[in-house]
Design a protein around this nucleic acid. Structure first.
Lengths: 403, 403
DNA sequence: GCATTTATTCCTCAACACGTACAAAATCAG
DNA sequence: CTGATTTTGTACGTGTTGAGGAATAAATGC
């Protein structure tokens, strides 16, 4: 059972203030007070502490109130971008993406490695990731010592609490303790998280979920993932396991049942078609979906049928997710969106037909083909979220005194 | 955003202590301190306040420590059963159940009304419920003034926050504000909650979920419902909507897709068979499932086939729920369990085949045909939960001074 | 220059958790 | 029967925290 002491109270309010400053750009203390329902004096005390810890900065310039306003001008507060730096990574079958971001989540450097890591031994993959992280950090003009946290977004079933990769299409073995592996290699605190969860938080901070504290994100990549945002926080099921949409069974009887990934996974859509020359090459290079769109536009019947099947199945699955979670918005991302109109229209249509009438108006569907960088940025956001919640001034590591 | 002040801190710790006393029977202050990680002095202060408010009682008898123990004997604390009384109700198509419970959730009186309310106008149903509540309260030797809260468990999609019945097989209209309706009739604070949520909390307090703070319950009655317990609390999706398992679509393509309720709902299983005389009569009286079991035992081929189809579909759906929520236990309740071995075995078998191998060991299935009284008791627990969380001594209504 | 307005800070108060010391109530030893 | 022992529960003081009011700071308008 969680016990409440003054420390927890302080942590909550500190987080509230910090998050308000992050969300609402340059903001004055009074406005924080209004938004957070905290008294001005409490806000002042907390912001003083945050300023003292170097997490926020004052800016006297940007008082954007009605210019002809009397009274003492507001002092605007902003996040100190240099308060911390984190690395976010997205690992996929055919490429890796790395970003270094500052405390605001803004990308400082970006590295894309088009390397096929599929089914390589764990050691090889760790090597490649370690290399990518180090290079991206150097590109940002930093050294690893200056990085606070690394977060690696992985496809598959991830146990966030322990950092265990339960199963992933990229790794040939189950139950790999990737968090420990990378922590030891980099000597930096490392988090492992599902790539779907990462992009969910990424969209909450910077993308299509900025205005909502409750939403659901469906990611259609090599694996079919799910992220549920509940009250501004990721909903991690019991044990912190990430969800794997691809493992859902579609069908009412065992005879005609099929796993969603077998209809709508990347491999399922492209698989049948990928025998022939140039297309197979594209798939191997991770550009299968873009290529597929061209083929569909050129009326490739086999692919069109596969895309239609996939769209239908996913539309139904999304309707089921809405039935269970009732979010006001469903953001759909991932490389499969590249399949184009046919796929998207089928999906939206199947959704409309499958959703029960009584909750038809509850959720809106939003399609967004986020750039790869955003996935990595989302992983960085996961890391930042943990930093935000961690106690800094009081119990955290004291900043080394400078002489 | 939720702000933290001393009041919140106190509320949290008060709840922790109260809940610890409820769960672990007669318990001494030191033991509370050990279990809750609160200091002994804090526990002492809080228990003093609880004693002062009359929510708990001291019991000097039951020091069950090693009998030959020296030192000052422990004073055991228990919930004061008479601190409050609530009414819980379960409304179903063919019958209503009411219970009055004390502050511990123990049933004081129980009333079962075998009335068919299916599709009656709202006014008629409210009348019947009002009557049932009043009779049950009188049976308990009480008057309505002495009841603190009423909670009514309804099948269908319920919006707990607003007390709105979004849709229910019992009501012919959608979006009925049942909470207000009953509050006005009874002049007692009334909560409306999904019957699945009610039985979920009921099992958490008294049934198969007593030892777990995370679990999932699937209810198979006229509607197919779901309750998710997360960290000891009901997980209510965005907007507080209850889930409706029956609205899930089973199938990967629209052509072969069917709603779960159309395969595994009570009507779907019994519907085809219920034309003939005695069976139709049983169904009308709400005893369809029990009768069906007898017919299946007598090798009624049509019914057996229907039960098998339903079991398969539900097994698959449960596997999907486990994929999404990853609970350590799934409790399956409801009248459909009466269908017997064929149904249960098919369900368990379909589940085993549908669950992804990587999480096969995560969840255990538990079947439990809870008595109707337990559903009503669960509704009472919902009411009690709200009482527990509400502030009593400080900000709540001060007890009228007695002269 | 002075009143006015607004943002921020200083000071005091109440509530809380916690640690220490002390009182209470039983057992055990002689 | 008396006193030491052991364990439990409580009174007091300290250090948090946040809230509210008074005072201060910094601009505008007349």
């Amino acid at each position: 059972m969680k016990t409440a002491d003054p420390e927890l109270m302080r942590a909550i309010n500190r987080f509230t203030v910090l998050d308000t400053i992050r969300r609402h750009g340059p903001i004055s203390r009074v406005e924080i007070s209004e938004r957070s329902q905290l008294s001005t004096t409490t806000v002042s005390a907390i912001t003083a502490s945050l300023l003292d810890d170097g997490l926020i900065l004052t800016r006297h310039e940007g008082d954007i109130r009605n210019a002809a306003s009397r009274g003492r001008p507001r002092v605007m507060l902003v996040l100190n971008p240099d308060a911390a730096r984190v690395v976010g990574a997205k690992i996929a079958a055919h490429q890796m993406h790395f970003v270094v971001t500052n405390f605001c989540g803004e990308v400082i450097s970006h590295l894309s490695l088009p390397i096929r890591v599929n089914r390589q031994p764990v050691g090889v993959i760790s090597d490649l990731i370690e290399d990518g992280v180090r290079r991206c950090v150097v590109d940002a003009g930093l050294s690893l010592d200056e990085i606070d946290t690394v977060c690696i977004g992985f496809p598959g079933v991830i146990e966030h609490r322990t950092g265990l990769v339960r199963s992933s299409p990229i790794l040939s073995e189950p139950d790999v303790d990737f968090a420990r592996e990378m922590s030891q290699r980099l000597n930096v605190a490392t988090i492992v998280e599902s790539d779907s969860h990462a992009i969910t938080l990424g969209h909450h901070w910077f993308g299509k979920g900025r205005d909502l504290d409750d939403m659901v994100l469906v990611s259609l990549e090599q694996t079919l993932g799910l992220g549920v945002l509940n009250g501004g926080q990721l909903f991690r099921g019991a044990g912190g396991l990430s969800h794997n949409l691809g493992d859902l069974m579609m069908g009412s009887g065992l005879a005609e049942t099929i796993r969603l990934s077998a209809v709508a996974g990347e491999q399922a859509i492209l698989g049948e078609q990928s025998q022939q020359g140039r297309f197979a090459e594209a798939v191997r290079l991770g550009r299968g979906m873009a290529h597929a769109q061209a083929l569909i536009a050129a009326e490739d019947n086999g692919l069109t049928a596969a895309a239609t099947r996939a769209g239908e199945a996913i539309g139904i699955a999304v309707a089921n997710i809405v039935t269970l979670f009732g979010p006001p918005r469903v953001v759909i991302v991932g490389s499969s969106l590249l399949l184009g109109e046919v796929f998207l229209n089928t999906l939206a249509d199947a959704y409309r037909r499958a959703i029960p009438p009584s909750i038809r108006e509850v959720a809106e569907l939003v399609f967004e083909n986020s750039p790869d960088e955003m996935w990595a940025q989302g992983a960085a956001v996961v890391a930042l979220c943990e930093l935000y919640e961690s106690p800094w001034g009081t119990t955290g590591p004291a900043p080394a005194p400078q002489f």
